[in-house]
Amino acid sequence: MNIEIKDILGKWKEFTLANDQGMSVSVLDFGGIITKVMVPDQKGKMENVVLGYKNYADYETNPNFFGAIVGRIAGRIQDASFETEGQTYSLEVNDGNNHLHGGSNGFSHFCWAVEPFHTKDSVGLKLTHFSADGDGGYPGNVDVAVTYTLNNENELIIDYYATTDQTTPLALTNHSYFNLNGNLKNTVHNHHITIDSSNFVELDESLIPTGRLVEVSNSTFDFREGRVLSDGFEDNSEQHKITGNGYDHYFIFDNEGHVVVKDGDSGRVLTIETDQPGMVMYTANGLTTGLELREGSSRKYLGVCFETQGSPASLHHVGFPNVILEPEFEYNKRTKFSFGVE
């Protein structure tokens, strides 16, 4: 197992974690961005299974948040404001009238301090950042650590840790777009997804939660027994239409967070396990054409994000997974991505 470090554009570093099975994960210190994940298909062919830019300079703006750590809050905050402890806080308006993914200077758009590490059976990176009181409009001094660990079982484990000195909202995630075909040969239409979830969060036309939970039964949002993503792409129901004919919805897990993704062509299987209460599944409905990616040009439905996190809807509605962190508690979450074949 080893770690390679490469200078990028004279200002960033890219760390490539490699295990003894040939799997590798490449990460920038800028935004903690996962730029590449190389895993074998059923014939042993190593290919990249995440979306990334061909030109590293494009990560500077990265409006699609390819591979990035997102925070302080992942997702949309209604009207770019929230109230806590009797005080109203105003945030950057960067998505219609709302606030998206921590804003233009969120966790996805600065350089993290990186400390590589080796253990007996893993390699990894510990990324740390101090976010000062008032950053992006959010209260509280927040110390954040995100750890990427790659082991010999072809598991990529992401651990999130944070503390604060004031009550503040915090919901961290990684925004990688997965495509198990490998090297972007096809869209994700035929990716077969299983999600342990009986309810999803209804959205309005601005993609803001309405406050209503919807049962998945008898709909294209029912992934409990598994279904292909194209079922939703081709469905004309209102919840699909407002997202651009796809998925951009928060699913609340019934039990422990468990998601299985299969691609029949490559035989690749991705299993996601998390202690987060839910997940936004986003199927790149808004991905425009013509971006130069590592293996080709961008287009709609070219990847799928599994944003395991709390729900920012809890800032405006009751009954949603909480995102408030209190000074006397620690934020401590884990999501594991396991790669295999069948």
Rank of each mutant, 00 (worst) to 15 (best):
F251N: 01
N190E: 15
E292F: 06
S230R: 15
E273H: 06
L270F: 08
P116E: 05
F107T: 14
I5H: 01
L17H: 08
A284N: 05
R299Y: 10
Q87L: 01
D196M: 02
Q78R: 15
N154E: 12
S197T: 08
V323L: 04
E47N: 12
D29K: 06
I193R: 09
G52M: 10
N105T: 11
I69A: 00
L28Y: 09
K120N: 14
V201R: 01
G226F: 08
S298G: 07
S122V: 14
R299M: 12
E238Q: 14
L100C: 07
T274I: 11
P169S: 02
Y247W: 11
E202N: 09
H101E: 02
Y148N: 02
L9R: 14
N152V: 08
G244R: 09
L51E: 05
D79F: 05
D275R: 09
L302T: 06
L203Y: 07
N186D: 15
E115Y: 12
V201F: 13
L287N: 08
K262W: 00
F251W: 12
F233P: 08
A313L: 03
N199K: 14
D121T: 15
E60M: 07
M38C: 13
E47V: 04
F221E: 03
N105R: 14
E326C: 12
N48H: 01
G340Q: 08
T220C: 12
E215A: 13
L229I: 09
N332L: 11
H316C: 00
G71H: 06
N285M: 07
M38K: 15
N179V: 06
R299N: 14
A18K: 15
A313K: 04
A113M: 12
F178L: 04
G67H: 04
E326A: 14
T167A: 05
G32K: 07
N19F: 06
G264A: 15
D121C: 13
G140I: 02
H192I: 01
S314G: 08
Y160L: 10
E92V: 04
G290Y: 06
K300I: 09
D58G: 02
T283C: 07
Y331F: 15
E14D: 10
F82L: 00
L172D: 04
P169A: 04
I242C: 12
A68R: 02
E295L: 07
G10I: 10
V304G: 03
G264Y: 11
W12R: 12
S108I: 07
S24G: 13
F253L: 07
D263T: 05
K126L: 13
F221I: 03
F117E: 14
H249Y: 03
E14N: 12
I195A: 07
L150W: 10
D263M: 06
L9Y: 10
Y247T: 01
L207E: 07
V142E: 02
P312A: 06
